[in-house]
């Protein structure tokens, strides 16, 4: 589509495009905000069970994933700087690093979930039924919130992969990089959500 329409009379509104991604980010903040409130209320209702359950999460994996996401946020932010400096090569390298870090995050998540499932902890498992409603609620929220977050990572990776191709093909350039900036904004949102998920689930026991 864009190949045929990309003439000099191309219609473009970068500011509106950025406003659009921000409005989407606000809906996402409210979505996860609602989940955080749900978590807080159930934690308030089952303090002992949440305390015991949270201690079973691996703080080391949680911390590693936090560091990975923070670094990836920096690399995608730097990619915008690189494209503005007309440095296509650095832009591409930074985007690839971001993608690799996102993949490592998901691999860690795979092992983390796998270990929980191996121990018989998964939504609707007989073990959780035995442990009672507090543990069921904690791990239900754990799987739902980290799962929804992981889904956002996957969507972000697809988006960033599209951006990678467009930079390579020269469709995203120093004077036309709004898609790269918007992709970055979305990626920072994913980081932002994790900044709260990490202490709520892993640290506060």
């Amino acid at each position: 589509m864009t190949e045929t329409i990309a003439h000099h009379d191309e219609h473009r509104d970068d500011e509106a495009s950025k406003l659009g991604i921000w409005l989407f980010i606000f809906t996402e903040l409210l979505l996860f905000g609602g989940l955080f409130v749900t978590y807080a209320v159930y934690r308030h209702a089952h303090p002992q069970a949440f305390h015991m359950a949270a201690q079973q999460l691996d703080v080391v994996i949680g911390t590693i994933n936090t560091v990975i996401l923070l670094i990836s946020s920096m690399t995608i932010a730097m990619a915008t700087t690189a494209i503005q400096k007309k440095d296509k090569r650095t832009t591409l390298i930074l985007i690839v690093i971001t993608l690799v870090l996102a993949l490592v995050f998901l691999i860690n998540k795979y092992f983390e979930w796998g270990a929980k499932i191996d121990h018989g902890i998964y939504p609707g498992s007989p073990l959780l039924e035995e442990l009672g409603s507090g543990d069921t609620l904690f791990f239900g929220l754990y799987f739902f919130m980290t799962g929804l977050h992981a889904l956002h990572i996957i969507i972000g990776m697809v988006l960033i992969a599209v951006i990678l191709v467009r930079v390579r093909k020269g469709k995203i350039t120093f004077d036309n990089f709004q898609l790269l900036e918007n992709g970055g904004l979305y990626w920072h949102l994913v980081d932002l959500i994790w900044i709260f998920l990490f202490p709520l689930l892993y640290l506060i026991t």
Binding site: S73, M74, A77, G184, H188, D191, L192, I195, F196, P199
Partner: peptide
């Protein structure tokens, strides 16, 4: 966490 998110919003975003 709130401080970190403020920094991400202000600089990265």
């Amino acid at each position: 966490a709130s401080t970190k998110s403020g920094i991400v919003l202000a600089i990265f975003m």
